[in-house]
Amino acid sequence: MDYRRDVFHAIADPTRREIIGLLARSPLNLNAIAENFDVSRQAVSLHVKVLIECGLIEITKQGRERHCAARLSRLNEVSVWIEQYKKHFEEKLDTLDSYLQTLKQKDKHAKRKK
């Protein structure tokens, strides 16, 4: 299957989200990352590969070790995408709030008339 991996693909997987969270705290080598999961080191390496392809982490070599560090600025794409829907739902909630306030006022007036 040939497709372009993007940030959304990367964060779709809970293990990859957890790896990003670990690396957001501090850079780690692959073994240190793998120690946090109940999957094989090879499985963690595949997740790391996806995160590299998506630009969410970068690898630097220090001697014989490879350290992974988060590139959280790449998550801005997700933030921008979410923001458009956040505004939409805030508008819907504001409309619902206005409607509920109107019903509340009508209910108050109906109780006074009784």
Results as ranks from 00 to 15, higher is better:
93 L>W: 06
31 N>F: 05
55 G>R: 07
30 L>W: 03
50 V>W: 03
47 H>Q: 05
93 L>V: 10
33 I>M: 00
104 K>T: 11
103 L>Q: 11
48 V>Q: 05
52 I>Y: 08
51 L>H: 07
30 L>C: 06
66 R>C: 08
77 E>H: 02
102 T>W: 11
86 K>R: 14
37 F>R: 03
71 R>Q: 14
35 E>R: 06
81 W>F: 11
83 E>Y: 11
50 V>Q: 05
37 F>A: 10
83 E>D: 14
67 H>E: 09
81 W>C: 09
84 Q>R: 14
35 E>G: 05
93 L>P: 06
95 T>G: 09
75 L>V: 06
53 E>A: 01
33 I>L: 03
37 F>V: 04
66 R>P: 09
90 E>H: 10
72 L>R: 09
61 K>Q: 14
82 I>F: 12
105 Q>C: 00
55 G>T: 05
53 E>H: 05
94 D>V: 07
85 Y>P: 01
31 N>S: 10
81 W>S: 15
100 L>A: 11
76 N>D: 13
64 R>W: 04
92 K>T: 11
95 T>Q: 15
96 L>M: 15
99 Y>M: 10
58 E>Q: 11
103 L>G: 04
79 S>T: 07
91 E>L: 15
72 L>G: 10
104 K>R: 12
80 V>L: 12
64 R>I: 04
103 L>C: 04
59 I>V: 12
94 D>G: 04
68 C>T: 04
66 R>F: 10
93 L>K: 09
103 L>V: 06
68 C>Q: 06
98 S>G: 12
34 A>N: 00
105 Q>G: 08
40 S>G: 07
105 Q>M: 14
